[in-house]
Each structure stands twice: as C-alpha cells, then as structure tokens.
C-alpha cells in the first residue's frame, strides 16, 4: 500500500528547545493514525511539519508522494491546534466560506449535519459553546473532502456526546478511504479511532504500533484493586496474600489499597476467598484491564519523571535528548 504520509528523520528546534529529534513516521493510505503524548512533546510541531506550515531543520516529508508545500491543497484538510475562525460568522457561513476556497467541496449543509450542528447553523461562532465551536472547526477541515485529514486535537472541549458524533464521522471517513492523522490527549479516542498509535515524548517517537500491541508491550498486567476496611499497616497483609495467592500483590502509591496483578476475572473468587479466610473485610473490589492510558503513563510518565529529575539536578543531558531506545521493547519502536 502507498504511504499517504512519509516523514524521515524530522528534526526541529526552537532556540535551545528540541521540538522534534529525528522523528520518522509512515501513515498508510486509508489508515487512522493517532498521535499521543504529553503537552510540549512536539505533536503540534510534527503536525505543522507534515502539513508544510513549519519547515524542519532536517529531514524530509512526503504527503501523497509530494512535498507538503507542493501538494494540491484540495487533497489535504487541516485543523490546526487552537484554531479560531472569524467569530462573527455563523457556523453555516463559516463552512460555506471554507467550501468557497476550493473548486469542489462538500455541501456545507451536509457537513453541518455531519458535525451535528444543523440546529445551530445560524448561530454566530462567538455565541456557540466551546464544543460546538470545535465541531465547526472539524467541519471546516473536511469540507473539501480531502484524501488526507490532519486534525490537531479535534475533540478538545467537546462533550462526550459530541465527541462520539465526531468519532463516528471520522470512522465513516476512514471507512470511505480517507487517511486520518490526529493528535489527542484522550486515550479512549486514540484507542477507538487509531489503527496505529504513536507516542511522542520530548520530540521522540518513543512507541508506535496498534493499540493492542502497545498495551501488550507496555501497559502491564490487569489488576484487581482491593480497598480494605482496616487501619492496619498493609505491608504484612500484602506479603501474606502474595504467598497464598501466587499473584503479585502491591500496595498502591497512596498506601490505602492493595493491587493484585495479572488476575483474570475467573481468579477474582480466589482472591475473595483468601480475604475471607483471613477475616479481612473490604469496601470495594475493582478489576481493570490495562489500556492505552497505562501505556501512556508507563512511557510518557517515565519521561516526565526523568524531566523533573533532570530539571532538579540541572542535568544538561536531560530527557529532551534522550534516545527512544531507553524505553525498552514493545510495539513497533523506532
């Protein structure tokens, strides 16, 4: 399959700040690629570089086999981060305005319906809610029916129902063959929409793969959280349970709960029995499968912790320059 987006060794710095340090990335045609990462990780810089609105210091970008600046504009749709169109135009007028910039465009009324704003079409942008405003912006990005759609945090500020409207819309576009590259802080969004997910931290693409592969590789085991109704110190209880259950048992960070690791749903009864045998009362049991958020915390959280430590010790070779190799195996790492 031809690549819709092909970036090689992208490097970009702003003064002493390294925004991208050798990022390579390929997005196949028809793929939905979700880019996640902490604030300041370089996501927006990467998006700008891919869309031709920022020039990399080093590296090369091809979008639909052309340099971004040479690409026919009708073939790409972009929603910049913190985009704010003319506030005194209505939602309908804004979509008609952006449609009018292309030779061929989708019917603005259809786009308005697609983003769930038919009833608010005549409301000025400045009078729409934050979530409605963002949906207008998403509509403006896809009004030209692009082959490649690049969305920088498309659902920021949108309520859960509106978010699902946008998700269904993007899923429909992807099913019809549109390549979608989006950035998000919503791990559920990345997991639901992304055929593949890339985690960017400190300008490095530290992990890349399908959500399932990333979770398998980085998220750790499932866990059962046991909230005990006791004021006793948890450590002796933990050690006793661990030897009895043959599962890893940890005291959580707040030292208020026990975490029983790698427990399948069928094994929960064994844990309950072990607690009963010891006369331990509990107020709740919560079993959780690992998800993309655990991947994020495992990889980006580690990076942030290193950054904090580096800042504290004024280490000049801080995490901004850190190699992705330090994050270990898993997924489809660089």
């Amino acid at each position: 399959m031809d690549a819709a987006v092909d970036a090689t060794n992208l490097t970009k710095s702003y003064g002493d700040t390294v925004a991208l340090s050798g990022v390579s990335l390929t997005v196949e045609r028809g793929e939905v690629f979700a880019l996640i990462g902490p604030n300041g990780a370089g996501k927006t810089t990467l998006v700008r570089t891919l869309t031709g609105t920022a020039v990399p210091d080093e590296g090369a970008v091809r979008v639909l086999e052309r340099a971004p600046t040479d690409l026919e504009r009708a073939r790409i749709g972009v929603l910049p981060q913190a985009f704010s169109p003319q506030p005194r135009l209505s939602a309908r007028e804004l979509l008609a305005y952006y449609a009018g910039l292309y030779d061929e465009a989708r019917d603005p009324e259809t786009v308005l319906a697609d983003v769930g704003l038919t009833g608010a079409g005549d409301t000025r942008y400045e009078n729409l809610s934050g979530g409605q405003q963002r949906r207008v912006c998403v509509g403006a990005a896809l009004v030209n029916d692009p082959e490649v759609l690049v969305l920088d945090e498309p659902t920021t500020g949108i309520d859960p129902a509106g978010r699902r409207t946008v998700w269904r819309l993007l899923e429909g576009l992807a099913d019809a063959g549109t390549t979608v590259l989006l950035t998000t802080h919503d791990m559920a969004e990345a997991a639901r929409l992304g055929d593949r997910v890339g985690l960017l931290a400190d300008g490095d693409l530290v992990a890349l793969g399908t959500p399932e592969a990333l979770i398998d590789a980085h998220a750790g085991p499932s866990s059962l959280t046991v909230s005990l109704a006791t004021d006793e110190t948890l450590e002796p209880i933990r050690a006793d349970l661990e030897s009895a259950l043959e599962f890893a048992v940890e005291v959580d960070a707040r030292e208020s709960d026990l975490l029983v690791r790698d427990v399948s749903p069928a094994d929960i009864a064994r844990v309950v029995d072990a607690l009963a045998e010891r006369g331990l009362e509990y107020t709740s049991l919560e079993w959780a499968e690992p998800d993309l958020e655990d991947v994020y915390l495992a990889l980006a959280g580690e990076t942030e912790a290193l950054a904090t430590r580096a800042a504290g010790t004024a280490d000049p070779t801080g995490p901004a320059e850190r190699s992705s190799d330090e994050t270990g195996d898993g997924g489809e790492e660089r």
């Binding site: 700008r48 869309t51 031709g52 609105t53 504009r73 009708a74 790409i76 749709g77 972009v78 929603l79 910049p80 981060q81 913190a82 985009f83 704010s84 169109p85 003319q86 952006y98 910039l101 292309y102 030779d103 403006a140 030209n144």
Partner: peptide, 14 residues
C-alpha cells in the same frame, strides 16, 4: 495570526 487562521489558510488553495 492569533487565531491560527493563516496556518489554516496556508493549507487551502487561497
């Protein structure tokens, strides 16, 4: 510029 409108327009035919 403050509303990133030029960034958006740079990706349109205008």
């Amino acid at each position: 510029r403050e509303g990133n409108r030029f960034e958006k327009l740079a990706t349109t035919p205008l």
